[in-house]
Amino acid sequence: MIIGTGVDVVNINRFAEIIERTPGFIDRVFVEHERDKLLRSLAARFAAKEAAAKALRAPAGLVWQHCWIENDPDGAPHLVATGTVAQRAADLGINRWHLTLTHDEPVAIASVVAEHLTDDELLTLMRLDPAGRGLLSAHPRETDR
């Protein structure tokens, strides 16, 4: 069952201006392994964080670094949540994320679908995708902050 959806569009040029005039923005919003990405990829990741917040109905208190994007070996992005974002998702019954990103100057776009899978659906998914990409769980690369 779909619990929430979110989409966000970021103007890459305006995003560059925000980064330039706001010291600490990159460190405050992105986890360490995201920070070395190209500007257009950062803009798409920021759009993904905004889209995820919308899918969660944008409650106060979400921490930007509790949501980040990983890429599979084939390059496909997936959303990882921990801390405040994971807790809000759990409160809503969300156990799987769908994410798509795109960027083409001058915009970056992200779409997030937050879903609840039944136990049978989770078992089927794990047979099809043993890595469990997109499932809500803590991730070993980053810790709760």
Rank of each mutant, 00 (worst) to 15 (best):
I2S: 08
I2Q: 01
I3S: 13
G4C: 02
T5A: 11
V7G: 13
D8H: 05
V9F: 08
V9W: 11
V9E: 08
V10K: 03
N11Q: 01
I12V: 14
N13D: 14
R14N: 12
F15R: 03
I19K: 14
I19V: 15
I19M: 14
E20D: 11
T22C: 14
T22Q: 14
P23H: 13
F25D: 03
F25T: 02
F25W: 10
F30A: 04
F30W: 02
V31F: 01
E32R: 07
E32S: 12
H33N: 11
E34T: 01
E34H: 03
R35Q: 02
D36K: 15
D36V: 03
D36P: 04
D36A: 15
K37T: 07
L38Q: 14
L39N: 07
L39Y: 04
R40S: 14
L42W: 11
L42R: 13
A43M: 02
A44I: 08
A44T: 12
A44M: 07
A48D: 03
K49S: 03
K49W: 12
E50V: 05
E50D: 06
E50I: 09
A51Y: 00
A52S: 14
A52Y: 06
A52C: 15
A53W: 02
A55I: 02
R57A: 12
P59F: 06
P59I: 08
P59C: 04
G61I: 09
G61S: 12
G61P: 07
V63W: 01
W64C: 00
Q65H: 09
Q65L: 03
H66V: 00
C67R: 10
W68P: 08
I69H: 09
I69Y: 02
E70L: 06
N71K: 15
N71F: 05
D72V: 09
P73N: 05
D74G: 12
A76M: 12
P77S: 11
H78F: 15
L79S: 13
V80H: 07
A81K: 04
T82V: 13
T82Q: 15
A86I: 04
A89V: 05
A89I: 08
D91C: 02
I94Y: 05
I94Q: 08
R96I: 03
R96T: 08
H98R: 12
L99N: 00
L101Y: 06
L101H: 03
L101E: 10
H103I: 11
D104W: 05
D104P: 05
V107M: 07
I109P: 07
A110H: 06
A110Q: 08
A110T: 05
S111W: 12
V112N: 07
V113K: 12
V113T: 14
V113W: 10
E115H: 07
E115V: 01
T118S: 15
T118A: 13
D119L: 05
D119H: 06
D120R: 15
L123A: 15
T124D: 13
T124R: 13
T124A: 15
R127D: 14
R127C: 13
L128C: 09
L128V: 10
D129P: 04
D129L: 07
P130M: 01
P130T: 10
A131I: 05
A131V: 08
A131Y: 11
R133M: 02
G134E: 03
L135G: 00
L135N: 01
L136I: 04
L136H: 03
L136F: 02
S137C: 14
S137Q: 15
A138L: 09
A138H: 10
P140N: 10
P140G: 10
T143G: 02
T143N: 02
T143E: 06
